[in-house]
Amino acid sequence: MPIPSRLPAAAGVGFKPQHFADIIGGEQPIGFVEIHAENYMGAGGPPHAQLGALRERYALSVHGVGLSIGGAAALDAEHLARLKLLCDRYQPDSFSEHLAWSSHGEVFYNDLLPLPYTPETLARIVEHIDLVQTTLGREMLLENPSTYVTFVDSTFPETEFLAEIARRSGCGLLLDVNNVFVSAKNHGTDPTSYLAAFPMARVKEIHLGGHDEQTDDDGAPLLIDAHGSPVADPVWALYENAIARSGPLATLIEWDNNVPAWPVLAREARAASDILSRAAAAKAA
């Protein structure tokens, strides 16, 4: 029986080393931190010194960005072993990865790339998740992607695809509300309907982050999942609606590029925390 994901229903932040002193130093509006697994695969040094100190004080989410779960090829056994080593060392409260691929052939593309949603890819992903959960001995959470293109071959809507993966593999889901908004705007669909169809009972963590607004060659909106700005107002609104339905859930602020000073990030975390408190109060009433 894999260890279930058990992050607290609080706000958290994606950890950046430049914020270490602030996060460790005083009372902060966060209940957990999240790290990218691939940044902690060396043997020692400052990354592990900081992570060890953070682990003593906060709940921990390990978020992988390189396993290529959505790829056609078998998972990289060496990489999976490295993930196991990291999880065994820090005993995180959650491990998550993406509905995406990043490796093909011998090459690692360092991006979260899209895939068609078909019975074939569904079966492949369930196999991969089975292997991850068996190897790590933990439930994993699978995150919905932000996408810029869709595939002719797809036969499932994304929400149904994720629900079916979760049902067959027993994995949990990580709902990235910014990704929902970005994909919906890019494909001309309705983010509220997407969320209404999302299997919320499987969701164990939420991601919020900023996006960039561009236009494509036809002048249609093209949103980029850039993680370099505050969470946009419509994303906050979608988040509040989702939380009102599900009840409070661990909520992460992702800010990976143009990383701001700690008080700016803390303000975003506090905003999420306020929404969580309102949802908890409404539930109790």
């Binding site: 068609p116 810029y148 293109v149 595939f151 002719v152 494509d216 060659d217």
Partner: peptide, 13 residues
């Protein structure tokens, strides 16, 4: 393999 919906502006996407 990308959809026609994206094909309107597939290059930039």
């Amino acid at each position: 393999a990308l959809t026609l919906q994206a094909a309107g502006a597939p290059r930039k996407r």
